[in-house]
Every structure is written in structure tokens, then in C-alpha cells.
């Protein structure tokens, strides 16, 4: 059995991703200008915003993969769900961390309860921590645990818009900026660097998912082999 999690193609993908991150660092620190209002703190947004979008992409992918798993019963859909949930949760934690670091000089606080996206992201983080805790639980019936986790992931994904709307109504305000990206109100180099950030993090999601998927698949194969070996041993013992 090939125990490597990579291949020639993933190595190429990894190199392209590494190059895009180097380019992102160069553009973020040396090419893009300071913001009129935010000053140098704007540079943190080049990773904060792509991280936040990547989190939501991972969680939605996890929800979809879980739903397909429940319908098709193909285990590799569950591997995709697990991989994207783990990656999404790491990204989500980093989103909250970079958001807090950015918020301190800009909003003059580490945390703002009145901000919809901030509170929504925190709740999502907790939801998927629960999902990962469930996945990490030892179980005599792994198949049951996988189904349970799929239901939890679907519920968490369905909850995303409900949580967002309820938090928005709850405080009726947000400190976050409106969609300056869509309305193209930002400087040319700033916009380009942000797009570069999206590209780099998009490639990182794909690269990490492929490797994490392969780890999950190998773990599954090892479990099957161990079961097979145990059965074989039992049969040999009974023949004696």
C-alpha cells in the first residue's frame, strides 16, 4: 500500500500555492499602500478576509459532503466532510484571532458583541468544535458515529443563515464594513492583493483537503486491514 499522502500533481499544486503565498507577502507588505483610515492595519485584512471566506467555504463543503454521504452512503464523502470541517475550524480560529488583533487598533477593542459577523463566526466555531469532538469520540460502532457526525454537520450548515440573521436582529447593528469589495471602493493594489489572498487560500484549502482526505482514507484502510488480520488469526487458532 502506498502510504504517501501526496502525488506528483499535489507537489505541483503545493509549489504553486507556496509561490502564491510568497507573492501575497510581497504585495501585502511592500507593494500595497497604507489605508487612509486604517493605516498599516489594513495589511492584516489580506489574510483575515480570505481566511473568513475560506472558513465558510469549508463549512458549506462539509455540510454538502455530509448530506451526500447520508444519501449515497459512500465513505469517501465522509472523508471530505471530516477534512473540510477540520480545515474550516482551524481557519475559523485564525479568523477570530486575526479579527481580534485587527479590531484592537481599529475599533479600540479586542471583541465587539454588537458585530454580527464576529458573533456568528464564534458560534460557528463552537458548532464545529462540537462536530470534531463527536468525531474524536471512541465508538464501538464507527459507522454510527459517522452518521451522527453527518447529521450534526448538516444542522450546523443549515444554521449558518439563521444564526447570522438572529444575531443581526439581536443587536441591529454591525461594525464590519459593508461590501467595499463588491462596490470596488478600494485602491487598485489593495484590491489586487486581496484577490491574491483569495487565490492563495483557495489553493491552500484544496491542497490541505487532498492531503487530509488521503490521511483519512489510509486510516480507514489500516482499520480494515487490522480487522482482516484479526479474523485471519482467529480462523487459524480455531483450525489448530
Amino acid at each position: 500500500m502506498n502510504l504517501s499522502t501526496g502525488s506528483y500533481r499535489t507537489k505541483i499544486l503545493g509549489l504553486v500555492m507556496a509561490a502564491s503565498f510568497i507573492a501575497l507577502i510581497i504585495f501585502a507588505f511592500w507593494v500595497s499602500p497604507n489605508d487612509d483610515q486604517q493605516g498599516g492595519a489594513v495589511r492584516l485584512l489580506y489574510i483575515h478576509v480570505p481566511l473568513a471566506i475560506s472558513t465558510y467555504v469549508c463549512y458549506i463543503a462539509c455540510g454538502i459532503a455530509s448530506l451526500v454521504f447520508l444519501i449515497k452512503k459512500k465513505i469517501w464523502w465522509d472523508y471530505i466532510a471530516l477534512s473540510t470541517a477540520e480545515i474550516g475550524t482551524i481557519f475559523c480560529g485564525l479568523t477570530l484571532l486575526t479579527g481580534a488583533i485587527w479590531g484592537r487598533p481599529i475599533w479600540n477593542t479586542w471583541w465587539e458583541w454588537g458585530d454580527v459577523r464576529l458573533v456568528t463566526t464564534l458560534i460557528l466555531f463552537l458548532l464545529f468544535l462540537g462536530y470534531l469532538a463527536l468525531r474524536a469520540m471512541p465508538s464501538s460502532n464507527p459507522n454510527a458515529n459517522v452518521r451522527r457526525a453527518a447529521v450534526v454537520a448538516i444542522v450546523a450548515t443549515i444554521d449558518i443563515p439563521i444564526i447570522n440573521r438572529s444575531v443581526e436582529w439581536w443587536q441591529n447593528r454591525t461594525l464590519h464594513q459593508r461590501s467595499t469589495l463588491v462596490e470596488l471602493k478600494i485602491e487598485d493594489w489593495t484590491f489586487f492583493t486581496l484577490v491574491l489572498g483569495f487565490l492563495a487560500f483557495g489553493l491552500l484549502i484544496i491542497w490541505l483537503t487532498i492531503h487530509r482526505f488521503r490521511v483519512a482514507w489510509l486510516a480507514g484502510e489500516i482499520d480494515s486491514l487490522e480487522t482482516e488480520l484479526a479474523l485471519k488469526k482467529r480462523l487459524e487458532e480455531s483450525n489448530i
Binding site: 463552537l126 458548532l127 462540537g130 469532538a133 463527536l134 444564526i163 440573521r165 438572529s166 436582529w169
Partner: peptide, 13 residues
Amino acid sequence: LLMLPVLIPVFLG
């Protein structure tokens, strides 16, 4: 851990 975060929208409402 699973149930309480899901119930936050209900709690707020």
C-alpha cells in the same frame, strides 16, 4: 457542546 450552540438563535429570539 452539540446542543447549546445550535439553540443560540432560539435563545436570542
